[in-house]
Design a protein around this nucleic acid. Structure first.
Length: 463
RNA sequence: UCCUCGAUAGCUCAAUGGUGGAGCAACCGGCUGUUAACCGGUAGGUUGUAGGUUCGAGUCCUACUCGGGGAGCCA
């Protein structure tokens, strides 16, 4: 007898209809009567379940009628058209083998649970519809990102997780050490002596692969990293996690406009790919998580992203200052309320804000001709806020050295980074895309903890 | 870290300072096409923790812990 998956049955129904098949999976619900019953089975291969019909004639009929949710079964039967309106076909069981009986205190029930509760059982929540959909989309999108860059000839660089440099000061870093924390070695003045640590120096978990990937950009022209990053910031929001994944492309012989064009093309590719390759999951999100999802995503696919410079944005926002808790003025960073106003009220679609004051941006961003702004860009999207941050990098050695001096960074720590300018450095640009924020945007899920399998946030490292 | 709201049965929620309940889940039984199946019954509680006020506290007060929403920081 042919062993099949639920996905195969749904995708190639004609091949299996009125045929004997064998199916293995887990029980989602059981509805049993005196002489017959229904079981919904999910086998993990597909978002949808398949309904199994069983009758008294089964030798283990009574046992099957008392099955607990999440028990594992192997079923042999015939796939037939279903008389019920809610499914196109069903499996009429001829034999049901109980592979594993789930304990009766299984915590997931046939009803809605709050996301907060499901977070406390993160090891079981992928068995729910919502999380099954989230994590399949996450997988599909991860593949889409590789596909997008690989098909353009980009080289995937695996930048290090453990780093000796505090890249860009992007945030507080987690220290990596093999020292005995109860009695670490001390130097003459009593400070911890990290020269005796495993790496012979202070080491941390990376906050960004950017500086490393710039080195490979100067060899391979177009490159990207895609991996985990870590921030020890004590930020308690629905958009921040201590461990999250970033995509960081870096492109050579390219400026800020090329950078923004790449970002827009990538975003559209990802959205289209998810719609095409996880249609059941995306429909679920549109129906049960965010009713405006499809409208929003289709609007994006069919329109050009907005563009506005920081200076233009400030002029525009200043007219609305009476409506803001924090008034806007040139030189300070835009607040969340200002970003939301721009992307949700003014543009009603993703918008690039570019050319920020140099004082509020990182040292490596390229200084503009006005000497006041840098070639930086953020992509703001409705609902999520900042999803991409990027810039054209400063390729002029003397300007970069000046900016480092202004930022209080020592040249010794960044010697290798300066080498990239000395030895054939050319203009280049890149950006960082928060992977989880893309997933949130694509699914309508509103908390980053619900798009990471086992989320790590301040005061939370379960599982 | 700050502001704000919350924590009661396994889950989702009720309960005027005066005897802690319901729906779902579990368990037992019934039911010939169910769709969060339905119907009947049983069992289930140190009201987040520690103090305090009161004749009496789930309810009022204080601190703490955990969680939601907002802010800062950012991706």
């Amino acid at each position: 007898m042919q062993s099949v998956t639920v996905k195969e049955i749904y995708r190639e129904t004609d091949q299996f209809l009125n045929q004997k098949v064998e199916l293995s999976g887990w029980v989602r619900t059981v509805r049993s009567s005196k002489a017959f019953g229904f079981i919904e089975i999910n086998d993990g291969s597909f978002f949808e379940n398949i309904q199994v019909v069983f009758e008294e004639s089964l030798t283990n009929f009574t046992e099957i009628g008392k099955l607990t949710i999440s028990s594992a079964l192997r079923i042999q039967g015939t796939l037939i058209p279903s008389p019920g309106a809610k499914q196109p076909f069903e499996l009429k069981a001829e034999q049901i083998e109980l592979l594993s009986l789930s304990a009766a205190d299984y915590p997931l029930q046939k009803k809605r649970h709050t996301f907060e509760y499901l977070r406390t059982i993160a090891h079981l929540r992928p068995r729910t519809n919502t999380f099954a959909a989230v994590f399949r989309v996450r997988s599909v999108v991860a593949y889409a990102i590789h596909k997008f860059f690989q098909e353009k000839g980009y080289v995937y660089v695996q930048t290090p997780i453990i780093t000796g440099s505090d890249a860009e000061g992007a945030g507080e870093m987690f220290r990596v050490t093999a020292l005995d924390l109860a009695k670490p070695p001390r130097d003459e003045v009593g400070n911890v002596d990290f020269s005796q640590d495993f790496f012979g120096r202070i080491a941390s978990l990376t906050v960004s692969g950017q500086l490393n990937v710039e080195a490979y950009c100067m060899a391979f022209r177009n490159v990207y990293t895609f991996g985990p990053t870590f921030r020890a910031e004590n930020s308690n929001t629905a958009r921040h996690a201590a461990e999250f994944w970033m995509i960081e492309p870096e492109i050579a012989f390219a400026d800020l406009v090329d950078n923004m064009n790449l970002a827009e093309e990538m975003m559209k590719f990802i959205i289209q790919y998810a719609m095409d390759n996880a249609p059941e999951e995306m429909a679920f999100f549109n129906n049960f998580v965010d009713k405006t999802l499809f409208e929003r995503l289709e609007n994006i696919l069919g329109s050009e992203f907005g563009h506005i410079t920081y200076t233009e944005a400030v002029e525009l926002l200043e007219k609305e200052n009476s409506n803001f808790e924090y008034p806007v003025h040139w030189g300070t960073d835009l607040q969340t309320e200002h970003e939301r106003y721009l992307t949700e009220k003014v543009f009603k679609k993703p918008v690039f804000v570019s050319d920020y004051p140099k004082g509020i941006k990182a040292f490596y961003m390229r200084l503009n001709e006005d000497d006041k702004t840098v070639a930086a860009m953020d992509l703001l999207v409705p609902g999520v806020g900042e999803i991409i941050g990027g810039s054209q990098r400063e390729e002029r050695l003397d300007v970069l050295q000046n900016r480092m001096k202004e930022s209080g960074l020592s040249e010794e720590d960044y010697g290798w980074y300066l080498d990239l300018r000395r030895y054939g450095g050319v203009k280049h640009a890149g950006y960082g895309l928060g992977f989880e924020r893309v997933i949130m945007y694509l699914t309508g899920m509103s908390n980053i903890r619900d798009v990471i399998a086992f989320p790590r946030t301040a005061n939370s490292c379960e599982f």
